[in-house]
Structure formats: C-alpha cells, structure tokens
Design a protein around this nucleic acid. Structure first.
Length: 198
DNA sequence: GTCAAGATTAGT
DNA sequence: CTAATCTTGACG
C-alpha cells in the first residue's frame, strides 16, 4: 500500500519532511528515503514550476502522488514526487535512499561503486533503481512504482530529521528546503543542518 | 532557429 | 576544480 492521496495534497515542504523514512520501491529494487528537497510553485525561483506550466513542468501542476521525472546535464535523471495543496504546484526531489531491496540488481545497474554510493545523490539513485522519463506522470500508489510507509519488518533508518539549504542551486539558494536524516551515511554531501525539525 | 544554463557526476 | 553531454525554455 502507498500513502493516501491526502498525504501528498499538503504543503510541499511538509511532505518533503514526512517523506524521510518512507519506503520507495520500483519493481524488484527499493529502499528507505533519507534525503529530500522541496521545490515549490510560482514563489520559488529554483523550481521548474516558477514560470508557470511548460511541457516539462506540467506534471508539477497536476495530481499529487504522481512521479515527476526529468533528464538533466545530458546524463542523469531526477525523480520527484508531485506534492502541493489544491490549486498550487510543487514536487519533492528524492535525493538519497538507504538501499534495502534488490541490492544485486542495483549494483549491476550502477557498475563498480561502493555500497555507500549505490543510491546516494539523485542521479545515482535513478540509475540504481532503473528510473527514467518513461515513469514521468506514473501513479505512486500500489503499482510497479510505489511509495508508502515503512513496512513492518524493516528497521527505521539512522538519524534525526534536520533541514538545510538546497544543494546545487544558483537561484533560491537560501531557503532551508532540504530535509535529511542527520548522521545517516547514505545522505549526500551538502550543507550542514541549520535546524532540526519535529 | 539559436543559445545559454542546468535540482549532477566522475575524474584530475 | 572541471569536463561531459543534451534537453529545455526564452527570445527573435
């Protein structure tokens, strides 16, 4: 089971916070979310939704609880979860995962790398999980691609929720819209925590 | 049509 | 620190 739609129909930053510790699965592979970033609508100059809907950003204005996947820098995919209150736009970038399921398959896709680097960083995470643009717009509840609460039997990931500025931006750089589990080894390098979150 | 920038990564 | 690599969106 995935999260109910109402889970995604809230402030994007709140959803980004609550996605820490969530279970994400694509086919035979998956893991626990340990790092996210919120990208908002017209008020966020770093967001693809800043200048209104375009062919690419259209899904950010659409149904919460669907995937937004885009291609960047000629090599990499980034996976987002569409999340926003009614009438707005926004998505949560999944930046890092603690790998739990299908480690062999992920390793095969990623080639030679340390276990720690398997799903650390948005591009690596997509490569390991086999996520690409064909999943853009896909529903995240209960199908081949699934996002939901941590199943019983899975142990909670290490670390307390914290927040900091987002990684790799030129504009909108100061907003503390990155969320991560402080001290978790699968979190990417980035700004140190500026505050904890409940 | 043209062009610069980009929510990254691997390599020096 | 820098190159790689190609899509997107703004502008004319």
């Amino acid at each position: 089971m995935g999260f109910p739609k109402a889970f995604y129909r809230r402030e994007t930053a709140q959803v980004a916070r609550d996605l820490l510790g969530a279970w994400l699965v694509h086919g035979e592979v998956g893991g626990v979310v340990v790092e996210t970033e919120a990208y908002l609508g017209s008020e966020d100059p770093a967001s693809h939704a800043f200048r209104g809907p375009t062919p690419r950003s259209r899904v950010m204005f659409g149904d919460p609880g669907h995937a937004y996947v885009y291609f960047i820098y000629g090599n990499h995919h980034c996976f987002n979860v569409v999340a926003h209150p009614p009438g707005r736009a926004g998505a949560v970038l999944i930046r890092a995962l603690e790998p739990r399921l299908g480690l062999d398959q992920m390793r095969t896709r990623r080639g030679s790398c340390t276990m720690r680097d398997l799903t650390r960083g948005p591009g690596r995470l997509c490569q390991a999980m086999g996520i690409d643009r064909t999943l853009n717009g896909a529903d995240l509840s209960g199908g081949f691609l699934r996002c939901g609460p941590l199943p019983g039997g899975q142990t909670a990931p290490l670390g307390r929720p914290c927040r900091s500025p987002r990684v790799g931006l030129t504009r909108g750089r100061h907003e503390p819209l990155r969320f991560f589990l402080e001290g978790n080894p699968h979190v990417s390098r980035g700004p140190c925590a500026v505050s904890e979150v409940p």
